[in-house]
Design a protein around this nucleic acid. Sequence first.
DNA 1: TTGATGCATTGCGAATTATCAATGGAATAA
DNA 2: TTATTCCATTGATAATTCGCAATGCATCAA
Lengths: 234, 234
Amino acid sequence: MEKRAIANAWSGVSNCENCGIRHLALFADLEHTDFELIHKPIMEVEKKAGDRLYGEGDEGQFLYTVRSGVIKLTQYLPDGGQRIVRLLRTGDVAGLEVLVNPTYEHYATVLRDAELCQIPRDVVERLNRETPRLHNQLLNRWHTAVKQADEWLTELSTGSSKSRVARLVIGLSDKVDNSCYLFSREDLGAILGVTTETTSRIIAEFKREGSLKDLGKNHFLADLVRLQNIANEN
Amino acid sequence: MEKRAIANAWSGVSNCENCGIRHLALFADLEHTDFELIHKPIMEVEKKAGDRLYGEGDEGQFLYTVRSGVIKLTQYLPDGGQRIVRLLRTGDVAGLEVLVNPTYEHYATVLRDAELCQIPRDVVERLNRETPRLHNQLLNRWHTAVKQADEWLTELSTGSSKSRVARLVIGLSDKVDNSCYLFSREDLGAILGVTTETTSRIIAEFKREGSLKDLGKNHFLADLVRLQNIANEN
DNA sequence: TTGATGCATTGCGAATTATCAATGGAATAA
DNA sequence: TTATTCCATTGATAATTCGCAATGCATCAA
């Protein structure tokens, strides 16, 4: 995990303004003068799979914009059971809740090596107070989060585990080349609320029947038509 | 379903400003001058259990603040399966998504007779543009929605159906007098992602073992300690 | 009161999923 | 190369949940 200061205040400003993924990021709508409101450095950090960004209950100092990679947000039950409630990808923001509450509400863990912009909470709060151009982006982020949560409830937590795995694979597939990078069976199970073994059995079955072709390293070729049928069955 | 215009523009304004539940409502932080920005009537509507506020895909003309009663937000799967993704109660807002998208994203149905404030989308959009005092409330609403969705994923869609029913009953219980108003077994099942029969069996079992005491009309006395144990078991 | 209606409950067999334990296979380090 | 380690897969069995049909129960209207 390497940390590279984009900057002291001024050059941090300069870099955000020219960020390659700015059109996807929280600061998409900011104008030149807005960037002058940023008086704390925004760091670009790299994290490896397995690294933790923050834990539930930790004091929320930073928000994170995902530049690349995948982050999982996890919550635990009293009995120790865990559930992955959301996946964050390029352009998504982790830790939005610290604008409303002092602490984080999830464990944020890197699922695939990630590059992130680490933004001090103060910076976002100040921009939120002083320029209206951040508001729409913030509302959009919240909306996206609710939408994903609702989809997970209806699509990934309803029906037989077979259809649910199928829906998850479809959701993780690149619709252009039908390729699909999966996660460990344990993580897939934690997304779906089923056991590791059940997930494994179903994916193995998909491979046997040709719905998935194994390309190695958890990379698959997906037969989306077939999977869609399974997804709709039950 | 009776509709009573609070007003032409001016008296609508006046009434919102003096609303009995304003401290809970979307307009909680507005100041006197902000109310003058409201140039369309806000209607107070009464709906009976079973009435529908709007459907998924409908053009989103209104937001609704719940004054009393309970509203369910439902999504459907292609195979016809349905899932209740959220319950709205006093102070909650239905239809927030129309500030971001043109159409509603759920079916909103009255679960218990409800009184609602029907607010034209334009009104909220204008206030959102012209007064910063609505922003925090909007962010808060979104945050609440995400939080409830996440809780439903971890608590109501994880573990055995018995623990899930127990967690749901606890969540629906009045912590002061341990009383609990349930819904039809079908609705409870749609909240938990299990069948009506399974839900019914579990609640019947709770009654037999004394975790719930039936007071008639889906009103129960809950033994929260016992239920909590069941909730944590598995 | 008497039906009629709409739910809730229950029984039972089938299907699904969990659980525990063993085996297999691929990637990595020595 | 050879171990080693970490997962994924599979088997066997138990437990849970579903699906369908029958029955019970309370409410409401005639």
